[in-house]
Amino acid sequence: MSVIRPELIVKSVIPVFMDGIIAIYALVVAVLIANSLPPEMTLFKSFLQLGAGLSTVLSGLAAGFAIVIVGDAGVRGTAQLPLLFVGMILILIFAEVLGLYGLIVALILSTK
């Protein structure tokens, strides 16, 4: 991108930032689970916390794959045709929502 269109370098970093947001989702759930660990825990609560962690990780993994694929093709396409940037951002937002769904499920599971 810096060789073809140096003015679009900042726009080409947006997929990297969106992947970082998914990592923050996992960090939030990890802190919530770590802060709610009692000395004595039931098996039910243990499986709820396992499910909360797995829902965040697996949805984050799916969202990360989608963001990487769309980001790669979108940045290459935006270098050739800058009008593709808006479409890339929309698809990236829809991919980011996959990780947000996992965070919501984890929050619901960890509050039970």
Rank of each mutant, 00 (worst) to 15 (best):
S110C: 02
I91M: 13
F65A: 11
L43T: 14
V31Q: 01
G64L: 00
A62C: 08
G71I: 00
A63H: 03
I24T: 13
G102A: 02
N35G: 11
P39N: 08
G74Y: 00
S59R: 01
Q49W: 15
P82V: 01
S46P: 05
G99I: 05
V29F: 01
M41W: 08
P82H: 01
A95G: 12
L50C: 07
T78P: 08
Q49K: 10
V97A: 07
P82E: 06
V31W: 13
V29I: 05
S59G: 07
L107S: 14
G71P: 10
A23E: 10
A95R: 00
I108E: 07
L83W: 08
S36V: 09
L50E: 09
P39S: 06
I89R: 00
L58C: 04
A95K: 13
L61Q: 06
A26M: 15
A73G: 11
E96L: 06
S36W: 07
L50T: 15
T111C: 03
G87V: 05
G99P: 08
L37D: 10
T56D: 11
K112N: 13
I89N: 10
A73V: 01
R76Y: 06
F85Q: 14
L43G: 06
L48M: 03
G102T: 00
V105G: 05
E40L: 12
P82Q: 02
L81N: 08
V97K: 11
E96W: 03
Y101A: 12
L84D: 04
T78A: 06
G99M: 07
V68W: 04
A95C: 05
S59W: 14
R76A: 09
E96T: 01
G51Y: 12
G51H: 15
V29W: 09
V29R: 14
V86Q: 09
V86S: 05
L43P: 02
L83T: 12
L107C: 06
V70E: 15
I33S: 11
L37K: 01
P38R: 01
L107I: 14
I104T: 14
D72L: 05
M88A: 13
L50M: 02
A66R: 15
A26F: 02
M88H: 14
A63Q: 03
S36K: 03
V86T: 07
A34M: 13
I108L: 10
G87H: 06
P82M: 02
